[in-house]
């Protein structure tokens, strides 16, 4: 579905990603592991075209994304739930969710998706008219995921969805990830520091270190790999 070849990205004059090659197949959950500052967030932003100083090829369903402006990606079925959630704090939860479908005009379909998102996150139903900035971290994360789902994505990227959340909410979030992958067939890329839960959920994994893809393989084999266990699982 998504094929990245020789991707280089720069933050100002500093190169952050070096010749990254990465492939995500249809209906897969892929996780990208890596320590702080390894370039995971930059990778996500580069795929979305937010960081525009880049070279290489990003291909999505056979189409080159390098020339597509960032705001057009959502109509192609690509979305990102960014690190730190980035909700619109002074809009209500409902408005936040509806903005997720901003790029689409089919009212009926939007309503259906809206209902589906609220069944996924019943907690949001109670909060619809609350300002997003006033909710707890877990609720904000649900709202952020709900918001990206509003666009009915084919390909969903999630940047650190577990960051700063209580363990039981992390479980809920990853349950939802599995659920939307199974039910709707959404292809998902999860960037995580919590390698344990990420690898248990994912089909395959990549390790990003200092802007270079270091290791890749099936999630099972990575869970069993000694290096991964030492570096990311803390065993």
């Amino acid at each position: 579905m998504l094929k990245i070849s020789n991707l280089n990205a720069y933050y100002g004059d500093v190169q952050v990603l070096y010749d990254v090659n990465l492939e995500v197949n249809d209906k897969e959950i892929v996780t990208i592991l890596g320590s702080n500052g390894a370039g995971k967030t930059t990778l996500m932003k580069t795929i979305c075209g937010i960081e525009t100083k880049r070279s290489g090829v990003i291909e999505f369903q056979g189409e080159n994304l390098m020339k597509v402006p960032a705001h057009k990606l959502v109509t192609k079925g690509i979305t990102l739930a960014p690190e730190g959630r980035h909700l619109f704090p002074e809009l209500t939860v409902k408005e936040n969710l509806l903005l997720g479908a901003y790029a689409f005009k089919d009212k009926r379909k939007i309503n259906d998706t809206y209902d589906w998102v609220l069944t996924l996150f019943p907690r949001l139903k109670e909060r619809l008219i609350q300002y997003a900035g006033t909710m707890s971290g877990g609720e904000q994360q649900m709202c952020a995921i709900g918001r990206v789902l509003m666009s009915n994505p084919k390909f969903l990227m999630m940047d650190e969805p577990s960051l700063g959340l209580a363990p039981n909410i992390v479980d809920t979030v990853f349950d939802v990830i599995t659920k939307i992958n199974k039910e709707k067939g959404i292809t998902i890329v999860v960037v995580e520091q919590n390698a344990n839960i990420a690898l248990q959920t994912a089909d395959r994994g990549y390790v990003l270190e200092n802007g270079v893809i270091g290791m890749s393989g099936s999630a099972q084999s990575m869970l069993e790999s000694a290096d991964i266990q030492k570096l990311y699982l803390g065993l």
Partner: peptide, 8 residues
């Protein structure tokens, strides 16, 4: 040397 695409 490096081809920058200035999209987005």
């Amino acid at each position: 040397l490096t081809e920058f695409s200035e999209s987005g």
